[in-house]
Amino acid sequence: MDLSALRVEEVQNVINAMQKILECPICLELIKEPVSTKCDHIFCKFCMLKLLNQKKGPSQCPLCKNDITKRSLQESTRFSQLVEELLKIICAFQLDTGLE
């Protein structure tokens, strides 16, 4: 393996790690329209609304089981920016390397 191939692999590993961190624990995809709970867990807005609409009253956070309500959800613009920038990095990496 030459040096450039090694560096490509390192970049790919970093991108994969970042994708894992920014993954919704419910749908296991890159978070879309991130919302945070009072317990500071981040999920896709759609995933949380789907969870909350399944029953009346408070639901439980899928990660820590604390009570959550629609009102307690906060849009997470910082995470939204992180996801947007990661998508740009992924696109640039794919253009530069031809890898997916």
Rank of each mutant, 00 (worst) to 15 (best):
T77A: 06
S4T: 06
T97A: 08
Q54E: 07
D67E: 14
C61R: 00
E85A: 10
L52F: 09
V8D: 04
V11E: 00
Q54K: 09
I26N: 03
P34L: 02
Q81P: 02
C64W: 01
Q19L: 12
D67A: 15
T77R: 13
T37K: 01
L51H: 04
L63F: 10
K38Q: 14
F93C: 02
C39W: 01
E75Q: 05
N66I: 12
L6I: 05
M18L: 06
I31N: 08
H41N: 02
V83I: 09
Q74K: 14
P25T: 09
C64S: 01
E84G: 15
T69A: 13
E33P: 02
V14D: 02
L86R: 00
K38N: 13
C91Y: 09
C24P: 01
I21N: 12
K88N: 13
E9D: 05
F79L: 01
L95V: 04
D40G: 12
I68L: 09
D40P: 05
F46V: 13
T37P: 04
M48I: 10
I90N: 04
L63S: 10
I68V: 04
M48T: 07
I89T: 10
N13I: 08
D96G: 00
L73P: 13
N13P: 08
N16D: 06
L73I: 13
S59P: 10
D2Y: 11
E10P: 04
C39R: 00
V8F: 06
S76R: 06
L52R: 07
L28V: 07
Q54L: 07
L49R: 07
N66K: 06
P34H: 03
K70N: 14
N16S: 13
F43P: 01
C24G: 00
F43V: 12
N66H: 12
E85Q: 11
Q19P: 02
P34R: 04
I26F: 05
I15M: 14
K38M: 14
D2G: 06
C91H: 13
F46S: 05
I15V: 11
K55P: 13
P58R: 07
E84V: 02
I90P: 14
V8A: 13
C27P: 01
I42M: 03
I89L: 12
V8P: 12
I26S: 09
E9P: 09
I42T: 15
E85K: 03
P34A: 04
I89F: 14
Q74L: 06
C47G: 02
C39G: 01
